[in-house]
Amino acid sequence: MTDVLARASGVTRRYGDVVAVDNLTVEIPAGQLLGLLGPNGAGKSTLINMFVGLRKPSSGTVELFGHDPRDVRARRRMGMTPQETGMPETLRAGEVIEFVAAHYPDPLPRKELLAQFHLEDVEQRQTGGLSGGERRRLAIALAFVGRPDLVFLDEPTTGLDVEVRRALWDGVKAYNAAGGTAVITSHYLEEIEELAERVIILDGGRCVADDSVAALRQVSGLRKVTIRTPEVPTLPGVVGVEQSGDVVSLLTHDADQLVRDLVASGAPFADLEVSTGSLEDAFLAYTTKAPTATPASA
């Protein structure tokens, strides 16, 4: 059995009358890249805040490395990204790194960290004067300062351009390959799809799905039939249409039947391609109540 680094058991968190997290049980095993998905207000941040000791559960228990997360001992092997807004503006990037490093017994050497996150040029600049991308990279670097075994990355690449995002993904993958465990929330499904092995979809504070990325793609039950055609054909069994230029994607529960109907309709088309639905489809299937997107099983 693999080590469980962190565990939430029957956790509920209320803010006044609002239930942000509702009787949730989650285990984070060592070495896993866990994606946390959910619409705004689903309880992702609240869950993470309970894991890192910022908030107490209203009921249930949260454990981090076998301790209460509010206990200092629990947090020595954990790293987290601060929100890049509100960093101490008058301090230089290097000074902020030094401050965070002082909390850990064996921090990464500063030069190594700076190089890893392409921050060498900003070491001497005050954080208030950094660009959004630089500040974001600094924030992510801070999660890795103490050589953590578990990192919580809350929206790590929001607002970054594609290239920097790719570079950070590679960094997370390398960290994971070396045995690191990460919990990632993101607005970009693409990011979760790229990085995570396991995905938890939260909605209304509850866990509505908890499975591998591959299994979640399957379970949405949707197939995507993509063709090149001048006109969107009208066919039975189509539950969604995406169109860009003359490339049309038809979402359906039964790709075989749709292709038969497509051929029988005599509509002109080329470049037929059938793929399993994306994680995005699964996500929508789980978090919307649209009749066409009911999950096949729960």
Binding site: V52, G53, L54, V72, R73, R75, R76, M78, M80, P82, Q83, T85, G86, M87, P88, V100, H103, Y104, L142, G146
Partner: peptide
Amino acid sequence: MKPWGGYVRTLPGG
């Protein structure tokens, strides 16, 4: 009030 203050609370300093 600042997110940074919250972040510092997650560091193992106490």
